[in-house]
Design a protein around this nucleic acid. Sequence first.
DNA 1: GTCTATATATCGATAGAC
DNA 2: GTCTATCGATATATAGAC
Lengths: 214, 214
Amino acid sequence: MSPSNRSRLRAHPASLPPSTSSDGTRRRILETALQLFASRGYHDTSIRDLAKVLELQPSALYAHFASKEHVLAELVRIGHEAHHEALQAALKDAEPEPRQQVRALVRAHTRTHATHPQLAVVVNEELYALTPELAAPAIALRDKSTELLAEVIERGMAQKCFAPPHPRVTAAAISAMGVRLPYWYDQGSTLDVDTLAEAHAELALRMLCGDLAR
Amino acid sequence: MSPSNRSRLRAHPASLPPSTSSDGTRRRILETALQLFASRGYHDTSIRDLAKVLELQPSALYAHFASKEHVLAELVRIGHEAHHEALQAALKDAEPEPRQQVRALVRAHTRTHATHPQLAVVVNEELYALTPELAAPAIALRDKSTELLAEVIERGMAQKCFAPPHPRVTAAAISAMGVRLPYWYDQGSTLDVDTLAEAHAELALRMLCGDLAR
DNA sequence: GTCTATATATCGATAGAC
DNA sequence: GTCTATCGATATATAGAC
């Protein structure tokens, strides 16, 4: 571990999404790894660091995961699945009208990143540390999530309710609002998650609709 | 170095900003470190990896930098200074009217991230790897750059030409468009930097002005 | 300023007892 | 499933010749 005491994230207890099925020691390993990988990075966190926080011997971890990389892979899988399922559920519950669908997608995207910032950071910054084989399922899910937004934008443009300056650039800008959240947003501040999600939804619609009446 | 062949960035020759004063072997070290730190990460790049690409012995690097961390610190310094100077120059050349100032800031922010994607990634993802002492100057510059945008937004709101849903959230959203660029934008694609910068400027104004006439 | 050689520490992972 | 003990590889950095 490096001598730096700086952390990548404002420290919070690391939380896995409710859908996470692991329990017992396996779950403790995932939660602790999430905390350490988010704050120090995967390559700067050793098996010994993990074991020390868990009050286990390093060798005990290998009864639960085949390797350090497999711990990261599981976190990456959990994060991508929770995110994608949140987007799908939001779309399903929203009215079919494009503006309502964008609102629903952006709110879900923002809520995911605001309520699980450590998982968001690990998923986004450490994916490249996985071998292509272990990263592939996550990349596939990511592409599907990207496509959900792209399709809604296209439909809105066809219906003349969206007129973004550049569809792909605008989609990236909408996604970026959420992805950057963990680096500045402080849970428990005066700005609550609902207000934040609503502000992002409004910003997304301003980007897409521009001068068009809303 | 990890067994993964994945890279964090679409590979391009790493370029330092024109202002970089180093030359000779010192500059070659910085350019090579920039390439490796951006694609593999600081903690996954060893002194031996660096030396191998440079066709030098590992010990030769210590005639130019006191440590691996000092190489990163110099890259982080270069990146933050180039970025901040670009923002200041843009503001200086722009008309004082808030909308024109935002246009100028966003264009400069986007151009910096689009033309030096490796430097942007290293500056943003590896700053935490520095000891607080070495990171402090960069953090101070970052705060000043953030303040440049915040001030223009405040002035625009006072003049009733900006009405963002939430000033701090909107400033973060505007910044995020640029910061996320290196992860998807491909230099040399059909989307040129000027078009991209203009699209981002337009998106920023849509976020800030909303229904107000432009 | 680059080399050869190496000091010293830590890494991920395994063997085998219980 | 956790322990003790350790293997073999690799890490950053230094010493001293040229």
